[in-house]
């Protein structure tokens, strides 16, 4: 009998598009190198070890926030509350410094962040609210509460704790930023966690095909609630580093990083539809955005150009990924 199936496989495009689909880290690392070379050409002598340290230091908080987006995007979600949570955490630690002390401040900040994440997770996981809307609503609540807290504690000049200043902004031997002490273990944890733990597998599974995950016995609400709590904790960590880096503690500190954090994850090859991506590409994506920012600043371009460029890059890269990953 003639079988009703042909074994003709799905269309497999060769060369670059295949590389972009299967190993996005390689082509975008090449892109990063190209941008660095351009930097070196237009500003000769600037690109050196010291410069790299500065770039790295600036990229770390963005990379962590982009990590939140990466993890949530793997499940087909997004977390727009990260920046409100990050700012809140940074501010809270600073405001509690002179009373209860640094350690209590950290504990309170992380607890508050976890509660925010729990709220998002319950909305997304149990009530099936779209993650975008849910995290947006939570960011309202967090920002409002942080503002209220600010007025309640009447902190006119909030001092960023010296420990955070050191970790956030100083560099070992004027070269390697201390923030790597936090960032490298975190990166290792995320990279290994995604690959070698059941939880990591579940993130990919839920994002790739929620029906298949369900039919295999996964209860997605458990995964999603855990995920959004983790995401909020990571955001809080980023907020602490950021307040150390800028020596500012304000409730709107990280607001300008919402869109770049999504952009870094998208550029890094994580699909907004879920099931595809990783943290490695996201780190490179964060570096690309940081270098472009630095380059545009060095060339004296206004903020406006940076924003337009960022927006265009997201659309172009997202369209490229959509093209190479869509099954025709």
């Amino acid at each position: 009998m003639t079988s009703s199936i042909s074994t003709r496989g799905a269309r497999i495009p060769g060369g670059w598009s295949r590389l972009l689909r299967e190993q996005p880290v390689v082509p975008i690392s090449a892109l990063l190198i190209v941008i660095v070379v351009i930097y070196a050409l237009v500003r000769p002598g600037v690109v050196n070890a010291d410069w790299a340290g500065v770039i790295l230091r600036a990229a770390v908080p963005l990379a962590i926030l982009a990590g939140c987006q990466t993890l949530t995007m793997l499940t087909g979600g997004i977390d727009l509350s990260v920046c409100a949570v990050a700012s809140m955490a940074g501010f809270m630690v600073a405001s509690l410094l002179h009373g209860p002390g640094f350690e209590i401040g950290i504990a309170v900040a992380l607890t508050a962040a976890a509660l925010a994440g729990l709220l998002t997770g319950i909305g997304v996981g149990i009530f099936r609210v779209h993650p975008l809307i849910m995290s947006l609503g939570v960011s309202f609540v967090v920002l409002g509460l942080a503002n209220a807290w600010q007025i309640l504690t009447v902190q006119s000049s909030t001092g960023v704790p010296p420990v955070l200043r050191t970790i956030g902004s100083e560099r070992l031997g004027e070269l390697l930023p201390y923030s790597l002490v936090v960032f490298i273990p975190l990166t290792a944890l995320i990279l290994i966690g995604l690959r070698r733990t059941g939880f990591g597998r579940m993130l990919f599974a839920i994002g790739d095909n929620p029906t298949a995950a369900r039919l295999s016995g996964a209860r997605s609400w458990q995964v999603l609630i855990t995920l959004y709590v983790l995401s909020a904790l990571m955001a809080a960590l980023a907020g602490l580093l950021l307040s150390g880096l800028t020596n500012v503690a304000s409730v709107t500190l990280a607001d300008s990083l919402v869109l770049p954090s999504v952009a870094a994850a998208v550029i890094g090859g994580t699909s907004i539809f879920g099931g595809r991506g990783g943290f490695g590409g996201t780190i490179v994506g964060a570096l690309i955005l940081t270098v472009i920012s630095a380059l545009l600043t060095a060339l004296g371009f206004p903020e406006a150009v940076r924003q337009i460029l960022f927006g265009s890059i997201i659309v172009v890269v997202a369209a490229a990924y959509t093209r190479v990953t869509s099954v025709s």
Partner: peptide
């Protein structure tokens, strides 16, 4: 994604 990016632009 598109409108998020265009909001930058």
């Amino acid at each position: 994604v598109v409108t998020l990016a265009m909001s930058f632009v």
